[in-house]
Amino acid sequence: MSGQAEKLAKLQAQARQIRRDIVVMVGAAASGHPGGSLSAADIVTVLYFEVMSIDPQNPAWPERDRFVLSKGHAAPVLYAALAERGYFPVEQLTTLRQVGSLLQGHPDMRKVPGVEMTTGSLGQGLSAANGMALAGKLDGKDYRVFVMLGDGEAEEGQVWEAAMAAAHYKLDNVIAFLDYNGLQIDGRCDVVMSYEPLADKWRAFGWAVQEIDGHDLEQILAAIEHAKAIRGKPSIIIARTVKGKGVSFMENEASWHGTAPKPEQVEKALAEL
């Protein structure tokens, strides 16, 4: 196997493990958001296992790259990546959403090592990412801030305030992903609230825009490399994804946005993963 093929195979296996973790922890919690966690799993895997410069032993390392999960309800994918990367024991994942657990329903930066920003109320993560990016520029540090937005989340007005500001301040150290799975709680995004043309909107706001298949690891890697090379403007990678990706009965079903699998469904899902 070539180096690149080997790298992709490793990432593929890692993404599969993260999907298994998501199903298991949401099943154990009997509550949570599997659909949007599974759709973001490949991107999050690439970031945490290939792209980001981070040190799980030293989560506060000032030079580290940052990741802000603006669509905070996808907390399970972030927790799985952090645990698999060694920020805390994998065994803790099944404490998700229990009283006293570090793993809140939505990410809490004060509780979980590696969580960079407390999120959950949609639309706020890009603003925080911008603030971190401004601080990085001010301090002459070359870290990058990655941020994951949901497509439904882009209906929030604050996202566009932040989009405008990121371009105004030429935050080329911000790389955003839009997890374009096309579904939100009430159904198809284009039925709930028409937001197309999304790519044109981001372009009009002054961003460098790429559109990729968000489950193709090679495309994800290439898009990030391309975004890193862009100077003078922020980048967004609009990633076409499948909500519930990897679990046949969850795929493209809006009902799996915030529904936990029952024990027999967990078994069925794990058999597929």
Binding site: P62, R66, M109, E116, M117, G123, Q124, L126, S127, A128, A129, N130, G131, M132, A133, L134, A135, G136, L138, D139, G157, Q158, E161, A162, M164, A165
Partner: peptide, 17 residues
């Protein structure tokens, strides 16, 4: 853009400011 004002301030603070 006050929502972004507060969110950006939060991000700056998260990075030590």
């Amino acid at each position: 853009a006050e929502q972004n004002l507060m969110g950006t301030a939060a991000g700056l603070a998260a990075a030590g400011k």
